[in-house]
């Protein structure tokens, strides 16, 4: 059986983002990282692999630089890596989902893990979209997955506390922040990763005709700058501060 984890490379949450000509300037991003929720998906994919649920393939769709994530995943234990080399910056979610679904079929994976949303777009559509395309049960926003015999049991937050959901394969889990430590690679893993070859394909190689994007991003711009802080001194300013906290900051 094959387990797949879907990884997306995003600007590091601490990296400065510059916008020029109405577009995020990709070249200005100083550091790219694996989207944080995807890291939890990877961690649980490794746990499933260790529990004997199957081999683990790490999959990404993105430009050349995204391959670093796959090597990093191999260093912590992914058995194989699949990189669909494509410029995803102007693709809509339908295009991405059809590519990823084809990639999962290509790897014959029946258990798929990914983040509940990516740290850059925050749209949250990839997991459910891919699940529907491959005909898998989708369990969203989980914080834990375990294998129990032939089925998979996941923990997810519900309105009345926690909920344990059991599904059989094919299934897809989207990950929320989980209460687990992410593992660090070790030298042996890093040296093994060097020997593993990343399978690199194009969407066409997977038989996907992505067509034109149906969504057009008109422009991107930076969030407005925070207004400078205001300073108040002395007891006489208390009423003004209270007023401002109530009316402007909406915190009391």
């Amino acid at each position: 059986m094959t387990i797949a984890v879907l990884l997306k490379q995003v600007p590091d949450t601490t990296a400065k983002i510059a916008v020029s000509g109405g577009r995020v300037d990709q070249l200005s991003v100083s550091k790219w990282s694996t989207s944080p929720y995807d890291e939890y998906a990877l961690e649980y994919a490794l746990k499933l692999k260790e529990a004997g649920a199957g081999n683990l393939v790490a999959i990404t769709c993105g430009p050349q630089r995204a391959s670093k994530m796959l090597t990093d995943a191999a260093a912590v234990g992914a058995d194989s890596m699949l990189h669909i080399l494509a410029d995803t910056s102007e693709m809509d979610s339908e295009q991405i989902q059809s590519i990823l679904a084809a990639a999962i079929r290509h790897c014959e994976a029946e258990i798929v893990l990914c983040g509940k949303q990516a740290a850059d777009t925050n749209s949250g559509s990839t997991g459910p979209g891919v699940a529907s395309r491959i005909g898998a049960a989708c369990v969203g926003m989980v914080s834990e997955v375990e294998v129990e015999g032939g089925s998979f049991s996941a923990l997810r937050a519900s309105s009345s506390g926690n909920e344990r959901v059991s599904v059989s394969k094919p299934c897809l889990f989207t990950f929320d922040k989980a209460a687990t430590e992410l593992r660090r690679p070790n030298v042996k893993g890093i040296m093994m990763a060097k020997r593993k070859v990343i399978e690199t394909v194009s969407p066409q190689d997977l038989g996907v005709e992505i067509g034109d994007s149906k969504v057009n991003i008109e422009s991107q711009n930076s969030p407005p700058e925070k207004p400078p802080g205001q300073k108040f001194e002395g007891a006489e300013s208390v009423p003004i501060v209270v007023l401002k906290l109530r009316e402007e900051a909406n915190v009391i």
Binding site: T71, R184, P185, N186, V187, I190, M191, A193, K194
Partner: peptide, 14 residues
């Protein structure tokens, strides 16, 4: 090398 950079990042994280 890429391997040396991965070792660097691992120790940096530690």
């Amino acid at each position: 090398t890429e391997e040396e950079r991965m070792v660097r990042d691992m120790v940096r994280d530690f």
